[in-house]
Design a protein around this nucleic acid. Structure first.
Lengths: 90, 90
DNA sequence: ACCAATGTTCGTATACTATCGAACAATTGG
DNA sequence: CCAATTGTTCGATAGTATACGAACATTGGT
């Protein structure tokens, strides 16, 4: 759902996650240096995942997180790019 | 703020308002046939206005509402267009 | 087997959002 | 001046979001 994606991207913490992923590709959850507790971070990752913005695959004790760029570009062409461009550098 | 715009657009009622405005240009608040009470509609118009998505100018007893397309396209190039395209027809 | 590392889940507290109806303000028209 | 129209504001309420710490599960290494 479009509104779900927009909502997921409307939180500063989650937008920061997406920006880092757009820059760096796949990363483990713990490598984001987020200004919240890890339980809160886990919540934000879930919101992004359930909105279809990211995917997470387990690898050892950690989860490698990555953007679902192709899916997003297919469902909502240009949206992610414009958001990333508008959000500026990290 | 980008997150403010994304948040404003993440509500179905508000997105519907924006879609109608993109289609029809300036309209009075009462002409949107929204599925909420007018006090609630007024709240949604305010959220959109404060996020910089729309502008409202008084004209008689009503407010003519319109998209701030140029401002948005300048601040967040491509964003509104991709959202409108992704949101489909009214 | 045990311990450390990584996230998730749970319970909870706080804050914000969407919603409504009622009351109010401003303007237009009779 | 009075009434109708249009939208805002206020107060209340129910639901949802964000945040945290504590406890738990899973995996990998010692």
């Amino acid at each position: 759902m479009l509104t779900g994606v927009l909502y997921a991207l409307s939180d500063p913490v989650r937008l920061s996650i997406v920006k880092h992923l757009a820059e760096d590709g796949g990363k483990a959850c713990g490598t984001f240096c987020l200004p919240v507790a890890k339980s809160t971070a886990s919540h934000h990752f879930r919101v992004l995942r359930e909105a279809g913005v990211i995917q997470m695959r387990p690898e050892g004790t950690q989860y490698i997180t990555s953007l679902r760029r192709e899916d997003l570009d297919c469902r909502f062409p240009g949206l992610l790019d414009s958001v990333l461009q508008a959000s500026g550098p990290i």
